[in-house]
Design a protein around this nucleic acid. Sequence first.
DNA 1: CAAAAAACATACTAACTAGTATGTTTTTTG
DNA 2: CAAAAAACATACTAGTTAGTATGTTTTTTG
Lengths: 196, 196
Amino acid sequence: MKKSAATRLMILQKAFELIYAKGYQTTSIDDIIATTKVTKGAFYYHFKTKDEMGLAIINELLKPQLTAGFIEPLQNNENPLDAIYQLMQHLLLENDFLKVEYGCPAANFTQEMTPWHSDFSLALYEITQLWNTHMIAAIEKGQQNGLVRPDVNAQSVTMFVMSSYWGIRNFGKLENSKTVYLPYLKELKSYLDSLR
Amino acid sequence: MKKSAATRLMILQKAFELIYAKGYQTTSIDDIIATTKVTKGAFYYHFKTKDEMGLAIINELLKPQLTAGFIEPLQNNENPLDAIYQLMQHLLLENDFLKVEYGCPAANFTQEMTPWHSDFSLALYEITQLWNTHMIAAIEKGQQNGLVRPDVNAQSVTMFVMSSYWGIRNFGKLENSKTVYLPYLKELKSYLDSLR
DNA sequence: CAAAAAACATACTAACTAGTATGTTTTTTG
DNA sequence: CAAAAAACATACTAGTTAGTATGTTTTTTG
């Protein structure tokens, strides 16, 4: 019972690539079995339905990626404002799991599946809340250390920063170029500096 | 040749409602002819393909809405920072063309159609550029009037504000509640105040 | 008002969709 | 190593998709 897990993971990864590129609805099971080279029987052995696979992508691929790539960097830096800026810069310009032309996987899923698929909404809500709470915590810790102005509302700042991130990812997608990221990052820096 | 235009417009409006609610890919022609009560022959008399209709929605419905609801308010206020805040507040909390659970129509289209459908990308790029240039112009005019700090980069601010708007719309969609708009608006105000 | 064109209606098609029924092969385990 | 279970394979189905072929009705125009 080990090779099975490998097959399952391989399906999830390749399916994610397809869905990230083309969208969930427009990626068919036939697309997935064609690129994974597993048969339909194998696919449906591992996943009861397409939606079960979609949820597994969120919970088993995106969630770990979020922890490793979006949350831990916030905890490894004394100064949360520096950490947020460096995180965004890295995510937008250097991270090669994420592609400018495809936007943000979580934001894509949200836009496509919400509010109709309640199980998707819940799974997506959980991962965004995860990022949210850790960013708030980082900012509040920065306030205790005197690195962030005490009158700053950590929750509002987090909501503002996360929103701008989802938004700029969508603009990058529209323009199919990282160029739009530059004025965004410039202004993000100015904004974050105003919180010191 | 007048009733024809009325039918066409009616199809566009009802199709928009469906697409805004469910997404473009998941709204079928059969859905559209069922709710509009026109037959398939009539539909394909007015639109050569589904995509032609989708583009007509962007160019003939969203574009005018953008001008009236997103751009003119920026021009009717002396102070661009006040104007931006009031615009956002109105769009998020009061405008009843836009629904929290469905997000931003332009952002939805962008996420769903870009980068694969180049004609959609172009149409969407045009309307976002329209908003973009007018917001930049408003800010720069504010700088000339001493209402905005001269060292502020109008282009970066605009990119930042527009991004945050698209992003918060997606969070509203995820949470299916305008509650998330409140901390967003709070921080938007703080941010805009820092530019005075 | 009649001919022409515009506007709409019906019935169909071929391709694709998620999912299933029923197998065979491979792996695990006593 | 044999029986059992897990993993995979093939062929099919019923429903849906965008789009078309071929009509009829309504409106416009000379």
